[in-house]
Write a protein that binds this DNA or RNA. Structure first.
Length: 298
DNA sequence: CACCATGTTCCTTG
DNA sequence: CCAAGGAACATGGT
């Protein structure tokens, strides 16, 4: 469930549930996900600590805590590809892929992660290399332009670089480029100023809309398997305005583009699928090749 | 068996 | 130093 909007919605969901709660025990079932923190150190530091607040940085969850001696500490979470976090009754049987469980008296905070790519650790070093928050004041058109100018990499690949801007993943990178009408293969340094500005705005709009959607649709944060299409921002196929329906290009290979009806293409860049409309997101050279007029981006 | 998957990091090769 | 590609991590869905 892991790009910025999903994490943001999860943080907002968990914040009022956790604030003020005291950790009464820590159960680590997969030591890998707390690395480089040791099981012993995690248990010791978290013992009887209280949650003071929650935050987010890129795709990372930040759990603010205060230990009994009033020392503040931050627990950092990352959902990887398949991570979930939710509250469950303390007596509930842990799910098959429970990685870490924090006991909170009558409830437990469960960190479940099928593929175990996620993290829940006291080590905050992973935050150091992150670029600006796309929805914060430090993400500026000028700064964005400068970062892009220094790279020959395809712009789609650059958008996934968390040091350029934090929190954009594969889905929203595709969506932002589509919205801005920019070819994903275009080398980052080749974007014209006007395109940089459109992309900057598109990144923000796409993320804001997704957060809005995730905050509006009823979500089930705990259900995992079949029957739970709601977890991932409401995938109920029949639900209007649902998550997948809102995505304009991602996962739509072969389907008609929502703007021009031209079939959406899938290509692989940096080992990830990129979806785009070859007409709405044409490069200048492809326009020359096909002799088509450049369609207007919105 | 094949392929695909919302992420990050490391390694090799050029 | 940089870019690109691949693999690894580990599991499940189709």
């Amino acid at each position: 469930m892991p790009e910025l909007p999903e994490v943001e919605v999860l943080v907002r969901h968990l914040e009022p549930l956790l604030r003020g709660k005291r950790i009464t025990g820590t159960i680590v079932r997969r030591p890998k996900v707390i690395a480089p923190t040791s099981v012993r150190n995690l248990s010791a530091k978290l013992r009887r600590a209280r949650f003071t607040g929650l935050g987010r940085r890129g795709k990372y969850l930040l759990f603010g805590l205060r230990s009994p001696d009033r020392t503040p500490l931050t627990l950092v979470g990352h959902l990887g590809m398949t991570g979930r976090m939710y509250l469950a009754p303390a007596e509930a049987r842990p799910p098959k892929h429970a990685a870490v469980i924090l006991r909170l008296g009558a409830a437990s905070l469960v960190f479940e992660d099928t593929r175990y790519f996620g993290r829940l650790t006291l080590s905050t070093g992973c935050l150091d290399a992150l670029g600006p928050e796309p929805l914060g004041p430090l993400f500026t058109v000028d700064g964005f332009a400068q970062s892009l100018k220094r790279s020959r990499q395809p712009v789609k690949v650059k958008l996934l670089d968390q040091s350029l801007v934090a929190g954009v993943g594969n889905i929203y990178a595709c969506e932002a480029l589509f919205r801005a009408g920019i070819a994903p293969s275009l080398p980052a340094r080749r974007l014209r100023r006007e395109q940089v500005k459109r992309l900057w705005a598109a990144v923000r709009t796409v993320l804001r809309e997704a957060i809005e959607c995730g905050s509006t649709v009823p979500l089930n944060f705990s259900a995992g398997r079949r029957g739970d299409r709601l977890f991932y921002f409401g995938r109920a196929p029949e639900a209007r305005g649902s998550y997948t329906e809102r995505l304009r290009v991602y996962g739509r290979e072969g389907e008609p583009c929502v703007k021009c009806a031209c079939p959406v293409r899938r290509v692989v860049q940096a080992a990830r699928s990129t979806f785009y409309c070859p007409r709405c997101q044409a490069t200048r050279s492809s326009l020359r090749r096909t002799g088509k007029a450049k369609p207007r981006a919105d």
